[in-house]
Structures are given as C-alpha cells and as structure tokens.
C-alpha cells in the first residue's frame, strides 16, 4: 500500500460519508455544505490521478459555482431555516423501492464490469500530465475525438439560460 492508495482510501471514505450526510441532513443549507465536501473530495480524486485540469474544473464549476448558486438561492428564497417535514408511510415505501432499484442497477454494473487490478498509470502526477495547449486544441478540434460539437452545444444551454434570465427580469 503506497501513499497514493492511502490518500485514495481517505478521500473515498470522506466522499462516502459526506454523501450520506448530504441526503440524511434535515437542514437544506447543511445538505448543500455536505454536497460541497462531496464535490471537493471528487476534485481531490482527480488531482490524485493527475488530472489537474479536470480537478480544477470540478472545483471551479461545482464547488465555486454550483454550490454558491445553491446557497445563494436558498438564502434568497427561504426566510428561516427550512426543515424537512416528517415523511408519510407512502413516501417512505416509494423512496425505499426506488433506492433498492438504484442499488440493484449500480451493484449489477459493478459486478459484471470485471475490474482489472491495474496500478494507476501515473504514480508521479507531475511527470506526464497533459499540457494546457493540448487541452485547448482538443477542445476546439473537429478531428476524431475532438470536442468542438459538445463544446458548442454547451453554449446553446448558456444561451437558453440568458434568454430565460431576460424573460424573468424583463419589466412588464
């Protein structure tokens, strides 16, 4: 067990516990905070694997962007601390059925995948990381495996957001 494995276990436990806390927490702001930890832990995993760009994106977009947006909208919408109400029997049953189905699918996929016990390719992350210009070129490349189409498709989403924002903010 080398240092990387130890860090992986630490991060995995951290992510799992935070994820559990996210769904079990009754306060919505706390849930958002635990979600922040989950996302930061995931970013940590990316860094551990040497995917520094992906890790930074994860931190910036999810931790710094989405969570801030969540917390912001919670602050704007709820006056006082909103606790979840006691759930009815019906809801409990429906929730557990869906959960069981989800676990079944998840475990089934894991079981049938057949992982190979390979070492992580990058034992020293700093050595063989992809440089920034490679990422940039790939992002705007139209070749096979290029990301121009998804990259541009995302901008349609942003356009939709802008239009929606304008519609809401428009003076009637």
């Amino acid at each position: 067990m080398n240092a990387q494995d130890i860090m992986f276990v630490v991060l995995a436990v951290f992510i799992t516990l935070s994820a559990l806390a996210t769904v079990l927490s009754k306060s919505i702001v706390r849930a958002a905070t635990y979600l922040l930890f989950v996302l930061l832990g995931t970013a940590g995993l990316y860094f551990l694997m040497g995917y520094t760009f992906l890790g930074s994106v994860q931190t910036m977009v999810y931790a710094g962007g989405v969570i801030v947006l969540y917390v912001f909208s919670i602050l704007l919408t709820s006056g006082q601390q909103e606790e979840l109400r006691q759930s009815t029997l019906q809801k409990v049953i429906a929730g557990s059925v869906i959960t069981l189905i989800g676990i079944g699918i998840f475990v089934g996929v894991l079981w049938t995948h057949g992982f190979n016990p390979v070492e992580l390719a990058l034992s020293k992350p700093s050595e063989s990381v992809i440089t920034m210009d490679t990422i940039g070129t790939q992002m705007l490349s139209t070749d096979k495996g290029g990301f121009l189409l998804p990259f541009e498709a995302v901008s349609v989403l942003l356009l939709a957001c802008i239009v929606a924002g304008l519609v809401i903010a428009r003076k009637r």
């Binding site: 922040l36 930061l40 930074s56 910036m60 710094g64 969570i67």
Partner: peptide
C-alpha cells in the same frame, strides 16, 4: 486556473 478555482471556494 487552479488559483482561480480555489479562490472561489471562499465565497461559500
């Protein structure tokens, strides 16, 4: 990029 990303956590 990392610098900017980590700096944005402070807002939370």
């Amino acid at each position: 990029f990392f610098f900017l990303a980590v700096g944005s956590i402070g807002v939370v």
